[in-house]
Design a protein around this nucleic acid. Structure first.
Lengths: 250, 250
DNA sequence: CTAGGTTGTTCTCAGATTGAGTTGTTCTCA
DNA sequence: TGAGAACAACTCAATCTGAGAACAACCTAG
């Protein structure tokens, strides 16, 4: 049976229900470390376990709108702050047994946010925190959220290579050093400052100068840094490739 | 309301039903041109329009399994031939109004296939064909399938850059020239033969030599070409970047 | 106020990669 | 058998990259 036959003969009450939800892997950088938004589940299954913020898609809303709404509810964020958060679809997880109660198909999203206030636990959660991703291993995660997070982190790492989205982790105006710090924390290793500088400025549309400089030099000295804002490129040409992480020995 | 509250209080009969389907953007190369698998819808809505093969996800099956099943049904393919087809998730389309009858969330997949036999129209379709993608503009496509196809084509182009999936369009053993033809067809412009050759052989794990050569030279002359098979790399390091398609003038 | 250390930015330079063209050889077709 | 085609290898200049150095602006400590 295919879609149209199915729909022609379809009566919702005849068919096993499928729940459609959105989940959000929201990333931000706090104190030089990559953090992830998690909530602690109040109710079974997986009560007490940590989980991604998410929820049911409303009948009249787009998938992306649902994800943005869930993110807003969980962070208590709105308006301009929320609008600056980058949100994209990550992947859809829909194995028959991912939720013990019924079939749940979840469209996972990936969000890049500038440093945001601490989240406020919603009615449905015991707690909500920005957790450093390095602290993830010891946590018990609900459902298949561990895998979703892994996929999200890998996507984030690779998105920094060929898109200018690293700027979304920063304030509207930033220095090249701050931008480099984003790459270093997401990729997890240091980059050569001089080469990074040269490369960023040579990619058309990545950043544009504001003409201004920071008010003060760095905390421990150094000159005032020039300020930039995100350019209008959607894609980085050429890309900023990260060094091959594992030597494919062959 | 969030996921767990929702589910705790959930009775399928209370809630507007959502249909979950899979659609497949299946690509292959025939006679040097990129082709796409389409079916012609037999029933309204969009009766007579062309659409992607797809259908309802069955209660006990994974999303990827559903997509593979739909592809098998539409191509009449099975066994080893089907197993060699690369299938990956593309994106999920779930706007509230994409189907006039009810809310349909569709998880689109992208497939790369070696040259396959002509499809057989299933019971639910008037017709099924491999259509050259260059002929797409003039076709009336059902639902938002035009957009899904655009996304699939762009994804295919970019996947060739950093994965060895171009080999999935070919037989298990192939020549470098055949591989180059895949790139030229998908990217839509010619590549420098010598440089392509050098590059492919220099990327670790992209291809490995079989030691054999073709039985005959090219149709219009030339020496016998060496044969290769796909290597074990999952990612191309360094990538085979396509020339910037539009000069980002700034 | 000054000395010493830190940092943003630019520069240098060798090595690797790329784009474009050439060469030599093997093969098919007429 | 000759002409043209195509595979594979090579050359070479232009560009890009990685690594380090230079240098001035700035902070803090004393």
């Amino acid at each position: 049976m295919n879609e149209q036959d199915f729909l022609a003969a379809y009566d919702p009450r005849d068919y096993p229900a499928v729940a459609v939800t959105v989940d959000v892997v929201a990333l931000t950088i706090r104190e030089g470390a990559l953090h992830l938004l998690l909530i602690r589940r109040a109710a079974p299954p997986y009560a007490g376990h940590w989980a991604l913020p998410g929820g049911f898609v409303r009948p009249d809303e787009d998938l992306a709108a649902g994800a943005r709404r869930e993110l807003a509810e969980e962070t208590g964020l709105g308006g301009e702050r929320l609008r600056r958060v980058h949100l994209e679809q990550l992947a859809t997880y829909g194995g028959p047994d991912r939720d013990p109660r019924m079939r749940v198909v979840s469209i996972a999203h990936l969000a890049f946010a500038p440093d945001l206030p601490d989240p406020v636990a919603d009615t449905d959660a015991d707690d909500a925190i920005w957790l450093p991703v390095t602290a993830l291993t010891s946590r018990q995660l609900a459902f298949d959220h561990g895998r979703i997070i892994d996929d999200g982190l890998e996507r984030a790492r690779s998105k920094l290579e060929y898109t200018p989205l690293a700027t979304r982790f920063l304030a509207p105006e930033f220095t090249i050093t701050e931008l480099r710090a984003v790459y270093e924390t997401v990729w997890g290793h240091p980059l050569h400052a001089g080469n990074f500088h040269r490369k960023v400025l040579s990619v058309p549309g990545f950043v544009e100068s504001t003409g201004d400089s920071t008010e003060r030099g760095g905390a421990r000295g150094g000159p005032r840094a020039k300020l930039y804002r995100a350019g209008d490129a959607r894609l980085l040409h050429p890309a900023l490739l990260r060094p091959a992480r594992e030597e494919t020995v062959r």
